[in-house]
Design a protein around this nucleic acid. Structure first.
Lengths: 238, 238
DNA sequence: CGCCAGGTTGAGCACGATCAAAGAGCGTGG
DNA sequence: CCACGCTCTTTGATCGTGCTCAACCTGGCG
């Protein structure tokens, strides 16, 4: 884990987070109202139903957004990577919990401070809007997966998306081929994302390995051996 | 169906659509770049994968957003009511089809015209942003439903949400109690929204009627007889 | 009256959940 | 260095919900 930078100027996500639309002047104002913090794996930033008083950017690590039913059933409704935005400005209570899956570094703002700043900077709000639209698109694609795809299709889709997003968010892939990476979490988490049980996840992964489409390295290592076959199984939408 | 108003000033959704943040001056500019149109039930505004060149507001009626897999499996990923916004500004291709479920009146804009207008009117973009955040919250709640809820719970949740949204969007409820309304579509559509088959929807609805929790009037009429019991079955989140 | 689309009901099946047990990886301490 | 204990994963056996396939019913309309 690299040292925290003193200013936003040299931030690892400077060019990809919402801050990318701000100039040096604006950035230093934002810098003053924010603070950086580190979360341990499993640590939550806030809980479903809380007044969500924080918003922020992910600098490093992966976090999950979860909703649950009163009887304990839980669903991961979003994964958040470096440069993604956390939280819901202009809202009251949080619709989901935010929990770190890996060790994570984030830079946070009091919701009210951030809102005030955003109101004066339409460029920033525009960027936020675009990020939210992308999130909405992703959520809807995931609805199709949860509602209509079989367990095998879900696993295949998940592995492909994981591979893409890890790469895009700057998480270093494992050495070797591009299609070799480390999952930031275990089987249970995969199940929570895909709406499956841990056993089903395990069985489908082993099946994919048996078929020679992927390879499993230790608990969390994944190698996509035959990407075409995996895409085939994923049944990508139209 | 009421006559189309000539200007935005007297529009039925004037106070609830994104236009609500604009003053008379701005509104008349917007008015000039927009056009009103009517869709018949089943008619699509655009298709998944199209270049989505249109955006707009729903004035009257209900539309659905759907995604599908190449083998024909289809999922409704959103329902759109009067005063809701349709389309994705600042994007390329549509992630879903937009189809009218009932006869619908909408006011549309060329995407590029609208974007240009929005860039000059941060207030408008702010309103759009808030609407998108609400949509995202709803999508995530629906993910929980699709991934974790049983068929009975889905039906119960659906009936409650339907009742609320129809009322909120100004669609007149049937006379009698407040909890009496007409579904804007048939059993197949319910299945497409809930990720269930038509047979399961039918069975669950009949069961609810047998238990005295709801009453079915003709093909599309619903009366919520025992709202508390229905809420109980819906297993609302935390 | 007959047709047809949409809805209901029934019987059997399959996929994934559940319950249960054994295996693998890993840090700790003797 | 290995034994121990813990967590996470894999594998197996059984069960149950909702899907599939198929027949029948209902209401609206020509």
């Amino acid at each position: 884990m690299t040292a925290l930078p003193r200013s936003c100027e040299m931030c690892v996500v400077r060019n990809r987070a919402v801050c990318s639309v701000l100039d040096g002047e604006e950035l230093s104002v934002l810098n003053r109202i924010g603070r950086r913090q580190t979360l341990a794996p499993g640590q939550s930033l806030y809980w479903e139903g809380d007044d969500a008083l924080l918003v922020g950017n992910v600098l490093e690590g992966v976090l999950k957004l979860t909703t649950s039913l009163s009887d304990g059933r839980e669903q991961t409704v979003g994964l958040v990577y470096p440069s993604d935005f956390i939280g819901r400005p202009f809202g009251n209570t949080a619709g989901h919990s935010v929990t770190a899956l890996t060790e994570a570094r984030i830079c946070t703002f009091a919701q009210s401070d951030f809102e005030r700043f955003a109101e004066d900077h339409p460029k920033l709000e525009h960027k936020l809007y675009e990020k939210t639209l992308t999130e909405l698109d992703r959520a809807r694609e995931w609805m199709l997966l949860l509602a209509r795809k079989s367990a095998s299709e879900r696993i295949a889709t998940f592995l492909l998306e994981m591979s893409d997003r890890l790469r895009a968010s700057g998480c270093a892939p494992l050495p070797g081929t591009l299609d070799r990476f480390e999952l930031p979490f275990g089987r249970q988490q995969i199940g929570d994302v895909l709406g499956l049980t841990i056993e089903t996840v395990s069985r489908r992964l082993t099946a994919l390995k048996r078929e020679g489409i992927i390879d499993l390295e230790g608990r969390r290592g994944i190698v996509i051996v035959d990407r075409a076959a995996l895409e085939d199984q994923a049944q990508a939408g139209e």
